[in-house]
Design a protein around this nucleic acid. Structure first.
Lengths: 199, 199, 199, 199
DNA sequence: GATGAATGAGTTTTCATTCAT
DNA sequence: CATGAATGAAAACTCATTCAT
């Protein structure tokens, strides 16, 4: 689905170089990063970049797809964990940590990319729903919280710390903790609006 | 400070049109929105925009300054409120509501704009610090939460709902409630990272 | 010809203010000077400027016309002078001095302006031709030199010094002297090209 | 210094096309010529011009550098000529002829461009000083004339003919002859102002 | 296959000129 | 009449994408 035949060894290497360079460049300059800079950072020509990714958006989609895939894999593993609440917290922790390792706030800037990304995203969302359902059933999160809520709140810790210049690399943990406390059943106040359906 | 002499009636109207169009356009396309599109949306010529705001950044700064000013005014009034916890929640509610009326997530994209904006921002931040201090001393928010935390979390409800395609206009209230529950003393778990100093 | 009825007193004052401001501004910034700056320097509105001069070029033409008129007047007076050679040298000296008092190199930047300017210019040229003819007949300039030659060389002293940053105000006299020595009969070498017909 | 590695064959051709088109366009319209017109005249896209010359000023600097380099080379060769006066005249003749082939009066409009141009210009000026010194010592030019004078007068023949609408291509020779006669010792009148130090 | 030169639509900004106040 | 706000056609420059080498 992603590729018909496997790439030649050097082509695969170039693809990796490009993805890494693009992630770095996007992290530093947001989506405004130029393909020329990305190619230069990868040590390759612009033409090569376009051979691998027909479009700047395709390149972005490839990165997003990677991240989503990794995240979904983590989530699926955690579905079998013994303590559902701890599993959900760990999922969110790993998600935020992944984001933090390479500042991926730019991922949010990206709107609709393509069908493949949409499919992967929905798959990952389903996994989150399952994690949340288990945690709720186990009484680890409040009864009125849904998978959709967690999906929406998932990126908030990283987003929030992105406003701190030179933020310490683990600052997001503080805000994940606060938000997760807000998801717990203890001391929960009724929510003023129903959960959205969509994600 | 803002203007030497009052604008002519029609010029004032155009200034308002431009600010509104710019806020809308920035909301839809982020800071990448073009001044040409903003002018077209305002039903005015590009030159008129330039006459009012010498620079795209000046236009952005004017919007940001407006919002920050409104918000600070609200905050200062609430400093005298009887119940500090309720006052803080109301401040956050009004802040988010203001943001919601025109999606202002783009405000965050703006880095350093100019000295006036910086000053206004710091003023507003000081007000938030005071609101939080009062609420904390009154036992309405957890002891380990600071003004900086609230400043950072302040925009999260709107940001979070911006991922929902056709979000109902009050959806942010749900996430503000969850986050505010996370700030309450009841059921608080210790935070894994100290609060940042900066904002 | 220049105007049907005489200007009202204040209108005439504004016209003078504008011409003076324009001459100064053109002198400092060349033809790139903006009408807005000229109007501001005159202490008047842009609209007033355009009421007096329908076009930036018209404004320039008015200045040029002034200068040419003054110069022609000087030339005509000198036609009656006793020593034709000295008269020609004085004409060139006065011409260069006029140019120097307000740096008028910008006058050269101006191409064809309008019929009135062209007519005045031709009138002035005729005067120069007469001055040169008299000097030649009197043996004060070489036999192979024409009025056209002098017209062309007339601006060279000022032009040449314009390359010297912070040139002393009388430097042009040095180059006028050199060029005028080149026009004298003594030590003249035959000229390799016939004089042009046109100016 | 000029280039790290040699340009690809077609790129080198385009660079030449751009330089030629720019020189023509500048000659016709002065520095106000637009890069779009230059590119169009070269039969290339605007982007191509930008790729070769990052800035309009860079393009101008490249032209100026070319001309100055050629001129200096000519001058240095003539330093060894047997007759210093004839050598100086030939230098001025070649300089004017170069200028004439492409009207380069716009070169003078260019102020400070960059360090490289400044250096080349100073080098060329030193060469002129040497040519003039030799000619003066040999009695071929008047005793009170300096290298600076010749540098300033060097462009006058071309400048002067630029006022003649369809000037014959060799008309400048006439004015170079007149000016050079002014530089000769025979019939020289004392100069009314000392030579400038600068160029 | 890889490279980087070429392209031109699009961006911000400037400014002569028009016209409502 | 005077004013300065509005206008839009350029201008310089950027950059995703194509294509010759």
């Amino acid at each position: 689905m992603t590729s018909a035949r496997p790439l030649r060894a050097d082509a695969a290497r170039n693809r990796r170089l490009l993805l890494a360079a693009a992630a770095d460049e996007f992290a530093e300059r947001g989506l405004a990063a130029s393909v020329a800079d990305i190619a230069r950072r990868a040590g390759l020509g612009k033409g090569t970049l376009f051979r691998h990714f027909a479009t700047k958006d395709d390149l972005l989609a490839a990165i997003v797809l990677d991240r989503i895939g990794e995240l979904n894999a983590v989530g699926e593993q955690l579905l079998d964990a013994a303590e559902p609440g701890a599993a959900l917290l760990e999922f969110l922790t790993i998600a935020a940590d992944h984001q933090q390792q390479r500042d991926l706030s730019f991922l949010q800037e990206a709107g609709e990319l393509n069908a493949e990304v949409t499919r992967a995203r929905e798959q990952m969302f389903r996994t989150v729903h399952k994690l949340v359902d288990r945690a709720r059933e186990h009484g680890d999160v409040r009864a009125d919280v849904t998978g959709a809520d967690v999906i929406l709140l998932m990126c908030a810790p990283n987003h929030v710390t992105s406003y701190v210049p030179d933020a310490p690399p683990d600052l997001w943990r503080r805000y994940l903790a606060i938000i997760f406390d807000g998801l717990r059943p203890e001391g929960a106040h009724p929510l003023p609006h129903p959960s959205p359906a969509v994600p």
